[in-house]
Amino acid sequence: MGPSAASAHRGIAAGHAAAPRLQGTTADARWLEWLFIGVSWAFLALVLLVPLGAVFCEALREGLRAYFDAFDDPYAWSAIRLTLFTAAIAVPANVVFGLAASWAIAKFEFRGKTVLITLIDLPFAVAPVVSGLIYVLLFGMTGWFGPWLASHDIQIIFAAPGVVLATIFVTFPLVARELIPLMQEQGTDEEEAAASLGAGGWQTFRRVTLPNIKWALMYGVILCNARAMGEFGAVSVVSGHLRGKTHTMPLHVESLYNEYNFVAAFAVASLLAMLAVATLAVKTAVQWRMQRELQDSAEP
């Protein structure tokens, strides 16, 4: 979209008699379009696709045998287990919160609603390592509750609970944020109709509200899960890097890499990359589905 390209476009378009294509007033020259498409793909390839491909190549550099050997390691399995455990707590916790928050915000009017919506987004504005740090300040040895926890022999920081808490914090807004705008747009008409037909609160939610938000909810769950499994900064701060105890998969990748155990590092990374690609595939499918339903219900 540079000046030289566009001013040149006039000259080219004028002299482009060979292609008998009607140049619409709102379209750019054909070559410019191809330039845009080329630049887009090149940009994406350089920063995203080639590096992603490299992860798999590096992981398989010494063959399938070496690749699978990377997982024949108790530390790798403990990292996978902790990652799954963390997501299994963080995702449902944020789903319950997201449903409660979106019901209160979208179906009722009350003072301070905009403040509440802003506060829900707050964790996005906090840097990942700071997200970890705040839990260290609460539960660490020198933190507010540190001495009390120590005297009761409860460990949160440098243990699994800290990892879970930090993960809940960084994924906190993801479900709520998908649901709130959708439920606000849908309004309360259908719920009121259900109430006037004699349905109770739980029946109304289960039979009317939930079916209307199911795709957005699923979308939020997928994003929340991907972030929960992939979080690095916040988890790194609270984990204390105890291999076999507080290492999640991303942290395990880092420690393998720092030990120059490249094949294993890339192998575990490739597993995470596959998770990302799968997330993307499901997310795209859900998105298309949502759009289709939106179009269907928009028809007269």
Partner: peptide, 9 residues
């Protein structure tokens, strides 16, 4: 994809 990909990856 960058949204879905762990930053370590």
């Amino acid at each position: 994809l960058p949204f879905a990909m762990p930053t370590a990856v």
